[in-house]
Design a protein around this nucleic acid. Structure first.
Lengths: 193, 193, 193, 193
DNA sequence: CTATAAGCGAGACGGTACGTCGCGTCTTTGA
DNA sequence: TCAAAGACGCGACGTACCGTCTCGCTTATAG
């Protein structure tokens, strides 16, 4: 076996077309009704080309997340000096995004994909909380809220927040701004305004 | 249809056999590989009998939850006077149960079913937190933890806890006892021991 | 067992409704797509009422034939003194009737029913040839055609004619008037005009 | 679709296995109880492979006829110089074949298939009369019987004979040798011996 | 003049087969 | 040698009917 084998190399064009198509169809029809055949047809690609490079549809979805093709809108968190206000704005944005009829069910689809593939689970969580900007924001907020001391359980607070988002997504019951404030009070130890 | 129509009546035997079979197979093979045909075959029932009364497999799962055929082990929460200890014991029990290989993936399956059917989502959440015994326990714990004041956001604290369970379930990363303590410190406002 | 048992007697209304519905649907959708459930529904009758009195759908069709609800138009044959002319007129009428789009496929449906139930086969044949008026007409025509001698094989001539009708019905190729004349020449021994 | 498209080609193995299985099962259980699933299972083939190439079970049967897999025994007619004797032998052979319990009902099944598909009707008729060897034999017999003149209606005589076969098949009443003679007398204009 | 038993409309039941969709693998042809 | 196209065996889908079996109601003899 030669170190560099002969023949054409993986087609980047095909790879991107497949990812874009997957992202589009995932938002459109959801994970359960997403099919390899459908992706191949719309992407103008042979099925084998997909099977050659990915081992399941959740793996394609995972790669879409890595490429930042999904949930771009919810990855940033403001740092204004008031951690509760910043997180409230972020949570409101998250719930507004997932309630948007255009990508209705997208996060729910990602949850299903997560159940199939823990790589997706990790990516979804990372993506929702902006590649760990959530934990960073919490750490940056030491002193801005009673619970945010130097030895606070930042990781667990982040989990509680993201977990609540997931819970509400599954229940199709986005949080209202009042509820997000109460959630933040519960996890940051702040008091109602 | 008249209020009392004549003719044969729904078979309770068939209904129970279907629910039992569904519960068993769900724990066995997971939601994605659960099939109506498989249920019908094992339950000794015609497919139409299933389609007549339920409109999807997630609807059957929802009824299993209502009948208490799933997740019975995690529905009770101790009330000892120490809310953090009680919830820690409960969380440890929850993670032990869902890590148990016998029902490996059961909760993950229920999450997938939830994505398909908000009825299931509501039931799963109700069941995990023991038909609202979680919120009740929190209310009963007023004064046992800094965050548990009379006007505390009990609902949101419960959501944060259940959400964290779901998050860890998807990531296939059950919380260790240390982590559950930190999560409780984060949501109850307690301090590490 | 008493000679006359108690209880209500067979409902003539239901019987007739079933036969009428069957005749109508048979002409409409054909024998293969005729269903007991469809008959019961349209006739406003329980399925059991049908199964109680008939053992198959072809048996109902047979009874429709007995009741003269099917193919009434083709049962009479003229007796004018010219057997070839009379049979030509009858054959033309038969082919016109079965080509009529309104009952398109009715005879074909009856052939299928015949294959299932020899009772129907006998009835169809009897009905097409007008309760043996065909053989009668042939017997009455002794001397009107070369083959019609006193010891002629009347039965076999009739069979040849009806068989040809069936053949053309299956092939969806009705005979033209010219062809019917040639068929009659072949079986009656007459010569072309 | 381009004239020569790339990609896999139709499997001849599968095609033949399907036709052979269909021929066997048709003789075994009859057309009404012949099922696509049964054929697929016995042929070791996916259902879709059948649906891809044929649009109904009668279409498969038609192709069996084309391939000469059905009714091979009745396709030849002797030419001895005595047309009545030759046809009598053929008719006796036909009725013997269709009465044979081994293929009991095969011709009846083909009649049902004909009702569904005129292609089958044409093929059955062509096959029974040996790819028009019947008409050929009649033409070859000019002068051997009163009705067989140069301008005789050969086609219609053939139809009368085949039609009678079908009629008797439906009635499950094969002709006796005496009856076949009378039928031939009726159509050929011969006299009883 | 009951009571009892059958007929009736209705339709649930365990089944079989339908025709379709999508899976993951394999085969062919063209670039 | 990869990629498109797509046929293949397979498994499940949701639907249509099958023939059997309750139901609750009505109706006509038999006691």
């Amino acid at each position: 076996m030669s170190p560099t084998r002969s023949g054409p190399v993986r087609s980047e064009t095909a790879r991107l077309k497949i990812l874009e198509t997957t992202a589009r169809q995932l938002a459109d029809v959801g994970f359960e009704r997403l099919t390899i055949e459908g992706i191949a047809a719309e992407a103008g690609v042979g099925k084998q080309t997909i099977y050659r490079w990915w081992k399941s549809k959740s793996a394609i979805v995972a790669e879409c997340l890595v490429e930042g093709m999904l949930l771009e809108e919810v990855q940033s968190i403001r740092t204004s000096g008031n951690v509760k206000a910043d997180l409230a704005e972020w949570l409101d944005r998250v719930f507004a995004t997932i309630s948007n009829s255009e990508s209705e069910g997208l996060l729910r689809s990602l949850i299903v994909a997560s159940a199939d593939n823990s790589e997706v689970a990790v990516r979804v969580r990372g993506t929702i909380s902006g590649e760990d900007t959530l934990t960073s924001r919490l750490r940056a907020g030491i002193g801005e809220a009673p619970n945010l001391t130097a030895d606070a359980p930042f990781q667990e607070i982040a989990e509680a927040l993201v977990g609540a988002i997931i819970l509400r997504t599954l229940a199709r019951a986005p949080m209202t701004p009042q509820e997000t404030r109460r959630l933040l009070d519960a996890t940051l130890g702040t008091r109602p305004e």
